[in-house]
Design a protein around this nucleic acid. Structure first.
Lengths: 167, 167
DNA sequence: AACCAATATGTTATACTATAATATTAAAAT
DNA sequence: ATTTTAATATTATAGTATAACATATTGGTT
């Protein structure tokens, strides 16, 4: 599918992770950037988590020769991964998400489920036009956008409906 | 003007603050909510600041019988002010901004100047449609939106151009 | 191979942001 | 007046992010 939305609850995480890592490998190669052990580990955790993870959450999961890394170590990896578009920061969660469609740098909006925390990253071409127009009219020089919608994903909407019927 | 964008550097702050406070007064009245001293002070600081202020920045400015308030005090006031639409949280700044057009609850986007930190709050009706459509297609139940653009305001763009010419 | 420059990491310390929990006070409703 | 509700005051702690500096690794150059 060209426009994936929310991931299925059950799906082949292994494959996701593998594909994501492979793409990252290639992306670094083509930019002559180093895909170091740290960067690998952080990206892998994000790919496996499949939802936005905070830095301290990542630190807990990070098994690094028996010790735990310092925040700076994670932040540095994230900064790098974000700079080449492999990871996004979700502002309204203070957390980071592996990009589900790396390589395409379109205008995307994140649909964040407030209940189960899963996120759909969907293209929002219609919004791109609106934003550039607004910027143009105002004389604003656009650098980047933060587009996030908050609410309930389809599965949680369904669950909520069921709960109500029960009570 | 019906669609204000960036405030002029020089303008009558006094009048802004006064108008904002008057509106808040009325808004609380009509909802049977109390516009207490705390809430007043916090809103006043935000109106006067005229840009996003962090909670600890607010605390520093908060003169409260010679002592300084605890964070919780500010957060409570903000929570209230936000709940009735007098204040917005700017996620990408971890800071709060007094609403410049209270009473209208349209879909707005914030244009945040990364240099001077001023913010334009502009209506983005075109985006509302795009978002609800996206939500509809995905089965997402939309609760709220975070729409922020980051870049340079017209004044800072101008200044940057001048600087370059100088060098 | 030895050296240099550039990049990335390790480490410690600290700053900034946000909430929990509980006691107290003030206001509104009966 | 009494009860109930909403708001405040206070202390403590949790969560997020960066600064500063020392060390190590990599890649390119002679």
């Amino acid at each position: 599918m060209d426009q994936p939305s929310f991931p299925q609850r059950q799906h082949d995480h292994e494959a996701c992770v593998h594909a994501g890592m492979a793409h990252a490998e290639a992306a670094c190669e083509s930019r002559n950037e180093r895909f170091t052990a740290n960067r690998r580990s952080v990206l892998k955790l994000l790919l496996a988590g499949h939802r936005p993870l905070g830095v301290y959450e990542l630190m807990k999961q990070f098994d690094w020769k028996g010790r735990k890394p310092a925040p700076a170590q994670i932040y540095r990896a994230l900064e790098f991964l974000e700079s080449i578009g492999l990871v996004h920061r979700i502002e309204s969660c203070n957390a980071y998400l592996a990009c589900n469609r790396p390589g395409r740098h379109h205008c995307t909006i994140f649909l964040v489920c407030e209940q189960c925390k899963t996120v759909a990253e969907v293209e929002a071409e219609r919004m791109q036009g609106a934003i550039t127009d607004l910027a143009g009219q105002t004389g604003f020089e656009l650098h980047s956008q933060v587009l996030e919608a908050r609410g309930l994903c389809p599965e949680c909407v369904g669950a909520a409906a069921t709960d109500e019927a029960d009570s």
